[in-house]
Design a protein around this nucleic acid. Structure first.
Lengths: 97, 97
DNA sequence: TTAGTTCTTGTCAAATATTGTCTAAATCTA
DNA sequence: TAGATTTAGACAATATTTGACAAGAACTAA
């Protein structure tokens, strides 16, 4: 499940209008619409607010959001998988210390 | 081995001056110095040129460069590892198609 | 030491990219 | 159709990245 899909489906489950979510996020409906369509990425602050507004576990949303940044960095690259694995190793080796 | 270290050690192995590498990359020595110190990230074009100038396997350099973008995205995050893994799965599942 | 060179650092403007907002059009619903 | 909701386009405002310059620090050789 992609971030934009999750946000949209959660909003629908809760029967909220774009306008209602927008006001909780302090922005306008157009932006929320774009976020739900994947045309715009939410900022980190917006992620925080969205988690509250839509009652989604914050770390779950954050993971998705970060994973999409990672995905965007490497998508379409021959060496995408290798590159990700190198980063993963680095993170893991740092956590040990 | 981090990107900046690789670039510096390769340059030293080949006994090149910053100024020489800089001219091959069409920039000034200050930028190369910063890249070798990790203060600046090379652009993708610079990566391509550096691979040639320093005689480094291009895909190896590219992997390192991409992996550092990924690393920067998630470093310091609680959920860093999970986020990377999600991205990895997504890439992998796309490659199957 | 001094002169010459290599490397490093700081700063700043230019170039890029991202974001927020407005307007109007499209879509939906009753 | 009218009224509400959602979407799309355009563009200004912001933020980030980049390149270039200049001055300083570190090193070398005589």
């Amino acid at each position: 499940m992609i971030l934009s899909e999750l946000l949209k489906s959660k909003r629908e489950t809760k029967n909220l209008l774009l306008r209602e979510v927008a006001s909780m996020i302090d922005t306008d409906t157009a932006l929320i619409s774009k976020i739900e369509k994947g045309d715009r990425k939410p900022t980190r602050e917006q992620i925080d607010k969205l988690a509250i507004a839509l009652d989604i576990e914050h770390s779950k949303l954050l993971k998705l959001w970060l994973s999409e940044k990672v995905y965007e960095d490497v998508k379409g690259e021959e060496v995408a998988i290798d590159a990700i694995k190198i980063a993963l190793k680095r993170i893991k080796s740092e956590e040990k210390n």
